[in-house]
């Protein structure tokens, strides 16, 4: 089919009758079932990619709700017992004048997850709508989302380390709240969602294939 847009003129592997192994990069003739080198399954396109993206994204978003509602840290000291949520912690940090840390926490715990949601939704919608705009930019966005997703776990690691370190019995203890688990799940689901996204679909927007393979 004629190609229009930025990718016009480019020949995809599928158009060339080739399929590449996603693991080892070995190129095979299309319709080869398994990689001759690494014995991995060979698929020219993942037809269920978008379903997985949406499913994991939804799960990640669901998990993100309790992560913000419930307390992240349960701090018990001799005199008081505090429960801080993510946003509450940021506000507290700002009140205490720790703007830098507040910014880091805010970026890592709020901006990045939400940005990922938005990015993935955008990518998925654009693929579904066979949009051929900004294909290069979308591909870069996908690379960024996939790369940066793991850094969202920094919050969970902080909580995990604090909980492990500060266990001074009655004097002071820090325990992870429900939000920590929820947040970790949310990050994991979001990463799975990003990985499920088959970036090759971006380039199929202006091409029509009869066969899903």
């Amino acid at each position: 089919m004629g190609s229009t847009g930025p990718s016009a003129g480019l020949i995809t592997a599928r158009e060339a009758g080739l399929v590449t192994c996603q693991r080892c990069g070995q190129v095979h003739v299309i319709n080869t079932a398994y990689c001759k080198r690494c014995d991995g399954p060979l698929r020219s396109r993942d037809t269920q990619s978008l379903q997985k993206v949406w499913a994991f994204l939804l799960a990640g978003m669901i998990a993100y709700i309790p992560a913000n509602i419930y307390p992240m840290l349960l701090t018990n000291t001799l005199v008081e017992h505090t429960e801080s949520t993510i946003v509450g912690g940021v506000v507290d940090l700002i009140h205490h004048g720790s703007f830098g840390i507040a910014l880091i926490v805010f970026v890592a715990s709020v901006m990045i997850p939400i940005g990922k949601f938005v990015a993935i939704i955008y990518l998925a919608l654009s693929v579904q709508n066979r949009s051929s705009d900004n294909q290069h930019e979308r591909h870069k966005a996908y690379e960024v989302v996939e790369f940066i997703g793991r850094w969202s776990m920094i919050d969970v690691f902080v909580v995990a380390i604090l909980s492990a370190l500060v266990q001074l019995n009655t004097v002071a203890t820090i325990n992870p709240g429900i939000a920590a688990l929820s947040f970790a799940l949310s990050v994991i689901f979001t990463m799975l969602s990003a990985q499920s996204f088959d970036s090759r679909l971006i380039w199929d927007a202006d091409r029509t294939y009869n066969d899903g393979h």
């Binding site: 379903q51 997985k52 499913a55 939804l58 799960a59 669901i62 799940l185 689901f189 499920s196």
Partner: peptide
Amino acid sequence: SLVWLVPVLALAVS
């Protein structure tokens, strides 16, 4: 895809 079970489960738990 069976992967839809994941959000369904998450939703159910939530």
